[in-house]
């Protein structure tokens, strides 16, 4: 098998130049999906029979939580690729993914608390789902802190990649927590193996928001990786030329 594309992807300069081409399309895609999804979800989809309008926070809560989990795999897999093949871009992607994941986890915890108050009657409860999600938040912060704790970059990449890999255990725990234990949080609504228990008129905008959040995640990841590339390659000729050219 020809592996040149894989090695080319690993070149920071190639990634930077290629992603400049992708970015405008990704901006348009992200903005249109998020605007369409939120307008449909907040203004046009019907109110819930039991919860009324407060259920609409689902259109932020669920996509943010999805990406907080998926983003962890992005971070851990980039960490593993960086660890095994020493591919620079993968190491930088891992660094870039940590704060994005932390923000998404915070958003899902925060919107969950805001949603919990009117529906459950409490902001916070230490059930398995919410606690494991809080652990995910600390894992993201831990990866960031560990990376910053080392002055030597290679050691920092190695250590934080291993922490990220160990933390992957938490993802299936979060996902299955509502089925394995008695929790206050309800089981999953969107199911992959059977029919989802949400009316289609509410499901479609939710799916658009989920895809929109995936696009937003890709956008944020590429933007942050580009910043990391420029920081790391600041002494190379091509970055200097780029800085002088745009100045």
């Amino acid at each position: 098998m020809d592996w040149t594309w894989f090695h080319r992807l690993g070149s920071p300069r190639w990634f930077y130049e290629k992603s400049s081409v992708w970015l405008p399309y990704l901006w348009v895609l992200t903005a249109s999906l998020l605007i369409a999804g939120s307008v449909w979800g907040l203004a046009f989809s019907p109110a819930d029979a039991k919860q009324g309008n407060s259920y609409r926070i689902i259109y932020i809560h669920v996509p943010a939580a999805f990406l907080a989990l998926a983003g962890y795999y992005v971070m851990a897999i980039s960490g593993a690729v960086g660890l095994i093949w020493r591919i620079k871009v993968a190491e930088l992607t891992m660094r870039a993914a940590a704060p994005i994941g932390a923000v998404l986890t915070f958003v899902s915890l925060f919107t969950g608390a805001v949603w919990g108050k009117p529906t459950w009657g409490t902001w916070w409860v230490w059930d398995a789902r919410i606690t494991s999600m809080l652990i995910l938040f600390f894992l993201y912060l831990g990866v960031m802190a560990l990376h910053n704790a080392f002055t030597h970059e290679e050691t920092a990449n190695k250590a934080s990649a291993i922490l990220a890999l160990v933390g992957t255990v938490n993802i299936p725990i979060i996902y299955k927590s509502v089925d394995w234990w008695f929790t206050l949080h309800q089981p999953a609504t969107i199911k992959f193996t059977s029919e989802s228990t949400i009316d289609p008129s509410m499901l479609y905008p939710l799916l658009i928001m989920v895809i929109g959040f995936y696009a937003l995640y890709a956008l944020a990841l590429i933007l942050r990786t580009r910043v990391e590339i420029l920081k790391r390659e600041r002494r190379t000729k091509w970055v200097k030329a780029l800085a002088l050219g745009s100045a």
Partner: peptide, 18 residues
Amino acid sequence: TEVLAKHDENYMPPEVAD
């Protein structure tokens, strides 16, 4: 000392629920 409502994973408009 405290009662919390645990809602289920079903979402539907009022007409469908009826």
